[in-house]
Design a binder for these strands. Structure first.
Lengths: 132, 132
DNA sequence: GCTACTGTGATATCTCACTATCACAGCTGG
DNA sequence: CCAGCTGTGATAGTGAGATATCACAGTAGC
């Protein structure tokens, strides 16, 4: 269990935290009923403010991803997760891992990789049709 | 030549614009000496403020990516670009395009794809060792 | 009940991204 | 020269994200 939001990525820290928690749950690293780190300890570990973690947790609860029990802590919700099966996510993770590895082997930086993905998601590269 | 920053992605618009310009240059869509859209026309087309485009251009010039000629316009710098050869970027683009296509075929949303990539870049998935 | 943990709530302050306007300055073509 | 394009600069206001601090409230264990 290790969360690592990147303060200089432009994306708000609390959003990154939310996504990382979701990611951990979807890939099975966190299972329904599991307890999440406390707000204060986590904030200290990540060297960010207590309020920022609290905001992320609150939003996650609002989305039904986790459950907050006052006085006890934060726990992964027991939602049936009608979404993708865990295996799909794991397959996707493997695929992405392989691609990123190959990109890195070609010497591409994180920023360049991000840019490529963003461009592709934006439907950018489609102008060329077959991309070279 | 079409730039499309996403105002609701969390990433600052001017940063997205910068990256898209860089991307266009690195992939060859924009070549050294080419003129970029004027600040005002582009701002109007993207429905964003003039200052936002100006900031992106200014930063790009500061990075040596483009050249601003007062009264004439913005042009792609003639930098020798000691970085990656265009072919490397094009190969990478093809690879990313294929991966994204496969992920989409599996039903993954843009957000999920982004999360997977970010997690991988963060060195996240390595806990599992070989990713499945 | 006290203590130590948990989450909750409110306030004030700072910074940054974005917007809206205004004015100024360099280039180009009639 | 002048009109119309270009980039430049300054100002002010709004909103969001993050911080620092404070106080309050529920839970568990002694």
């Amino acid at each position: 269990m290790l969360f690592r939001p990147n303060p200089s990525s432009g994306v708000p820290i609390y959003l990154q935290l939310m996504e990382q928690v979701k990611y951990a749950i979807e890939t099975g690293a966190l299972r329904p009923g599991d307890q999440l780190p406390g707000i204060r300890p986590l904030a200290e570990e990540l060297v960010i403010n207590l309020n920022t973690v609290a905001k992320a947790y609150r939003e996650l609860e609002h989305e039904g991803v986790i459950e907050l029990r006052h006085g006890s802590g934060a726990f992964v919700a027991k939602h049936k997760r009608a979404g993708k099966p865990a295996q799909t996510l794991r397959d996707a993770q493997t695929l992405v891992a392989a691609t990123v590895k190959r990109l890195r082997a070609r010497g591409l930086s994180e920023e360049e990789i991000r840019r490529l993905v963003e461009a592709e998601l934006a439907g950018y590269a489609r102008t060329g049709g077959r991309h070279g």
